[in-house]
Design a protein around this nucleic acid. Structure first.
Length: 534
DNA sequence: ACCACCGCAA
């Protein structure tokens, strides 16, 4: 009888079927077994896994006799509910109230909580306690430590633990690979995957998504193709949403459409993660209608769905559309988050809706209790400075509760240039120069500012500093796709096979533009060029 | 009986 209950509880936990779980719980109570043996712990575990934290907690608190298994179950429930702070804050009661000792299961949950918080020092303390415990060789705890160090970007430490694992399974292998990939150590990540004895969907997904997160979309795509060739069955949609993200970053519309087909073929259209990624992909590829189409077909839109379409509209200069989408979203009862507001203020900034932008910034704080991040201040600053409210912008940069970073100063500086305020421009340039920026484009901006103010000695100072820093500037490029071929164009390139045709077209376009009253802005070209060449 | 690895928006 009881073993039957145990079996069924485990099945509910595995399938997250809370309906069945509650029914079983009722039967267990009716049979008078709800405090019998290990059944209470199993009930706690079942409720936790089914996402019913309150029920789990209730049973946990009612338990007359708690053991480490009860604790492991409730701590896991907190982790599962994405409340790692709670995991760590109730854990000390295990000693203080129940007088119990940690076991290896508890260690693993604590490490996991630390890794989702990237709590470096706390995690290291747990690691130390683990080494001193009576089971310092537990491979599962070591796996969780690999993940912890990798998430804290301490790859050397992660690797050290990884190497100490005797029986390496796919979990620790995946954690290590993902750690390398998302920290930009792409070649090491790929090499590690190649060394993996048995690669499953998890490992491939971890590597591919890590590569996308670190910006290596090309490698991500290649590996996705390789994974397909290996015949790995795509039994969950994780990797698909990553690879849609890669197409979005590459603005590769045809590729994105192919992936979309694959998604339909595999039956993952209804995954909200996948749909959100598709909305973003179509928007980034400038097919805003397709983005809208996918968005409209999402059954249960979440904040990310709305934010994706709002940002998409904003990026295409459709500020009014973005704002009315926002109103619609609020009407459905969803709460916008900080990313939504980045999109909204960005939208206002790009069409000069200054008052609306200011209003949204305040509303974010007052109505939604969101603390503005540096990014929000940067958006607001952009809004003010683009529209020529330079003094207000400078005041903001000085009074905001963040140390402005280089791009922030650069945004203000470029607005000074735009609005011809060279006095403020020079002031800000001096400030920025003293920060010794790393980005070559900032030096160009600095040089242009000083040149605009006729401060030629400063221009040469900037040039010298640039020379010392030995920048290797990547040439700008763009591309078009012709059938299956991609044709890449680099700035200043002179050897394209269709060169004459292209130059002819450019000349024609230039003439058309001038006819319609366009006056090219050559003020930023400061080399000694002939007028026409500028 | 209880633990660890992968997904979307800036």
């Amino acid at each position: 009888m009881t073993s039957n209950f145990l079996h069924q509880l485990r099945a509910c936990a595995k399938s997250k079927n809370h309906f069945m779980g509650k029914k079983l719980h009722a039967q267990i109570i009716k049979a008078g077994l709800d405090q019998w043996g290990i059944l209470p712990n199993n009930l706690i575990d079942m409720y936790g896994k089914c996402g019913l934290l309150q029920e789990a907690l209730h049973l946990f608190e009612e338990l007359p006799q708690r053991d480490p298994v009860s604790w492991a179950s409730i701590l896991t429930a907190y982790n599962q509910a994405n409340l790692p702070h709670q995991t760590l804050s109730i854990f000390p009661n295990m000693f203080a109230i129940d007088g119990l000792q940690s076991d290896n299961f508890i260690f693993a949950t604590l490490v996991k909580a630390c890794s989702s918080l990237a709590a470096v020092n706390l995690g290291k303390q747990v690691h130390a306690q683990f080494i001193l415990s009576s089971f310092p060789d537990d491979d599962v705890v070591k796996s969780s430590l690999v993940d912890f160090y990798a998430k804290c970007r301490l790859l050397g430490d992660a690797r050290q633990v990884f190497d100490s694992i005797f029986w390496k399974n796919s979990v620790c292998w995946t954690a290590m690979t993902y750690g390398y990939a998302r920290n930009g150590r792409n070649l090491e990540a790929i090499e590690l995957l190649r060394m993996m004895p048995v690669k499953d969907l998890f490992s491939w997904t971890a590597l591919i998504s890590g590569l996308v997160q670190s910006g290596d979309d090309i490698h991500a795509l290649r590996l996705f193709i390789e994974m397909r060739k290996e015949g790995i069955e795509i039994r969950d949609p994780f990797v698909l949403s990553s690879i849609v993200g890669a197409s979005a970053n590459l603005a590769a519309l045809d590729l994105g459409k192919q992936i979309h087909c694959l998604i339909v073929a595999f039956g993952y259209e209804s995954s909200v993660f996948v749909s959100n990624a598709l909305v973003d992909m179509y928007a980034k590829c400038s097919d805003i209608l397709a983005a809208r189409d996918v968005f409209n077909k999402i059954d249960k839109r979440d904040v990310v769905s709305w934010t994706s379409i709002i940002v998409g509209a904003a990026q295409h200069g459709q500020a009014e559309e973005a704002l009315s989408l926002f109103d619609e979203m609020v009407l459905t009862g969803l709460k916008p988050n900080k990313v939504t507001f980045v999109g909204l203020i960005y939208a206002c900034s790009h069409v000069g809706l200054i008052d609306k932008g200011r209003y949204l910034f305040d509303s974010m704080i007052k109505d939604y209790g969101i603390k503005p991040s540096l990014q929000h201040y940067t958006c607001l600053l952009d809004l003010l400075s683009r529209s020529g409210h330079l003094d207000e912008a400078e005041n903001l940069i000085k009074t905001m509760p963040f140390e402005p970073d280089e791009p922030t100063w650069a945004a203000l500086l470029s607005a000074c240039k735009q609005h011809g305020n060279s006095q403020m421009g020079v002031r800000i340039a001096n400030n920025l120069l003293s920060l010794k920026p790393q980005d070559p484009s900032i030096y160009i901006l600095l040089s242009n500012t000083y040149a605009g103010a006729g401060m030629w000695h400063m221009v040469s100072k900037v040039r010298k500093q640039m020379a010392v820093m030995d920048f290797k500037k990547e040439p700008g490029y763009s591309w078009v796709e012709l059938g299956k071929e991609g044709q890449v164009f680099y700035a200043g390139e002179a050897s394209n096979k269709n060169r004459d045709e292209i130059l002819g077209l450019l000349k024609h376009l230039d003439m058309e533009m001038r006819k319609r009253g366009y006056i090219p802005d050559t003020s930023l070209v400061l080399q000694d060029l002939e007028h026409l060449e500028k």
